[in-house]
Every structure is written in C-alpha cells, then in structure tokens.
Amino acid sequence: MAVMIATEGLGIRFRRNRRGRRSFKDLFASKHRRSRPNEFWALKDVSFSVERGEAIGVVGRNGQGKSTLLKLVAQVMLPDEGSVRVHGGVAPLIEITGGFVDDLTVRDNVYLTAGLHGMTKREIDACYDEIIEFAEIQGFEETPYKHLSSGMRVRIAFAVISRLDEPILLVDEVLAVGDKAFREKCYRRIEQLLAEGRTMFFVSHNERDLKRFCTRGLYLDKGRLVHDGPIDEVLSLYNRHYADK
C-alpha cells in the first residue's frame, strides 16, 4: 500500500500570551532557541504513517493537539521540529465556513471557494446544481452569505468541500452544529468517499461516529501520541485514562 501521510518527530509550540499566533520572525527564531517559560508544546515528538484508504480516528480531550495535528497535515501550519510529508491533495473539512465571504452571494461563494481549492470553472459548472441540491439551499443562491443561518452555512460549506477530488479527507467536528437529518446525509457522503479509496483523518468526541468510520485510532494526550492501534483498543484506553483523571 502507498503511504499517504508520514510524520517523524513532529512538534509545534505556541506562546500563551499570543494565543498561538507567531510572526515570521518567531518562526525563524524558534529554530535557534530553546522553549521559554511562556511557551508550550501543542504537539511533541509525534511519529506515525498512514496508508492509502485508511480511516484514522484522532481522540483525546480538548486542548491535546488533535486539531493542530490536522492543520499540520493540511499544511496550513508549519512545525517547529520534525517533519510531515503528505502525498496528494487534501480536502479540509476544518472550520469549513471560515473561507466564505459574508457580502458575496451563495453562488459567488461556491465559485470562489471551489476555485481557491483548485477546481476549474468548467468543473464547478458541472457540479454546481448538485452542490446546491445537496446543501438543500435552493432559492437562496442569490442571497448574501451573511444572511444565512449557521446551519445553512455549514450545509453549503460541506457540499462544496466534499466535492473536491482530493485523495485525503480531514474532518474536524465540523458537523456538530448540523441538524440530525443533514448530519446523517453528510455521513453517507463520507462513507461514499471512503468506498472510493480516500484516506481520512476524523477528529470527534462521538464514539459511535469513530467506530462507524474508522478502523484505526491515534490517542493524543498533552500533545504526545499515547497510543496508535485499532480504534476499539484506542477508545478503550482513552476511556480508562479519562475515568482515572
């Protein structure tokens, strides 16, 4: 099997008094100095590899580095140490409504967002009606995005991102605010993508969803990889540790 994602000694640190935001000067300086008291390692010495077609569930309490790991895999953040190698494009279902522009219409946002992710106008034209139908947002295509409800925003964002023809899918609790019927519809779409051989990282606190999609799990605690193994085994270990704490 082809390796799609590989990390080796991966680590990233943040400053508490900057809420994790770093300048280019900070990034350069971080390579040449040790940690200071006001810094903490969000991830430290994380190593694993993922083969094509694997569905990985990432578990751990809030603030343990799960979302940070996905952002490093998506290559929207740079590590301070170690490496992450990604072979193939990524469809990031991470904060999926963040790239939409409030004053643009739904139609314009669909073309803008899909285009920024590499789709051509011809490709967007071919699937535009399917995107609108999937999002159940017919009749609102000329409505400014800022006038949509939060549920409608999630629906249109998921409909666009899930159409990307990328081999790696990153999912980070983005459907938690969706209604039950649409959430199930999205999950069927994810199952379809997995059946096509996509590789997936899935961050969730919902054990039922993790067991539904994933065969393997990564358990993160205090930014370190505690265990890598079958999803049932990882969840059992996580629950025992959580009960102890």
Rank of each mutant, 00 (worst) to 15 (best):
residue 87 H to T: 07
residue 88 G to W: 07
residue 88 G to F: 11
residue 89 G to S: 14
residue 89 G to P: 13
residue 90 V to F: 08
residue 91 A to Q: 11
residue 91 A to T: 15
residue 92 P to A: 15
residue 92 P to N: 08
residue 92 P to M: 05
residue 93 L to Q: 11
residue 93 L to R: 00
residue 95 E to S: 13
residue 95 E to I: 09
residue 96 I to C: 05
residue 96 I to H: 04
residue 97 T to H: 06
residue 99 G to P: 10
residue 99 G to I: 03
residue 101 V to N: 12
residue 102 D to S: 14
residue 102 D to C: 00
residue 102 D to K: 08
residue 102 D to I: 00
residue 104 L to F: 13
residue 104 L to N: 07
residue 105 T to N: 11
residue 105 T to L: 04
residue 106 V to M: 04
residue 108 D to R: 11
residue 108 D to A: 15
residue 109 N to M: 06
residue 109 N to R: 10
residue 110 V to R: 14
residue 111 Y to E: 04
residue 111 Y to S: 10
residue 111 Y to I: 03
residue 112 L to A: 13
residue 113 T to A: 07
residue 114 A to C: 07
residue 115 G to S: 04
residue 115 G to C: 06
residue 116 L to R: 09
residue 116 L to I: 15
residue 117 H to T: 00
residue 117 H to S: 00
residue 118 G to S: 07
residue 118 G to R: 11
residue 119 M to F: 05
residue 120 T to M: 05
residue 120 T to H: 00
residue 121 K to P: 11
residue 121 K to C: 03
residue 121 K to A: 14
residue 123 E to S: 09
residue 123 E to L: 03
residue 123 E to P: 01
residue 125 D to E: 07
residue 125 D to P: 01
residue 126 A to D: 10
residue 126 A to F: 00
residue 127 C to V: 08
residue 127 C to N: 09
residue 128 Y to F: 15
residue 128 Y to W: 04
residue 129 D to M: 01
residue 129 D to K: 11
residue 130 E to S: 15
residue 130 E to K: 12
residue 130 E to A: 15
residue 131 I to L: 11
residue 133 E to A: 14
residue 134 F to D: 01
residue 134 F to R: 04
residue 135 A to Y: 06
residue 136 E to D: 13
residue 137 I to V: 03
residue 137 I to D: 06
residue 138 Q to V: 07
residue 138 Q to G: 02
residue 138 Q to N: 00
residue 138 Q to L: 13
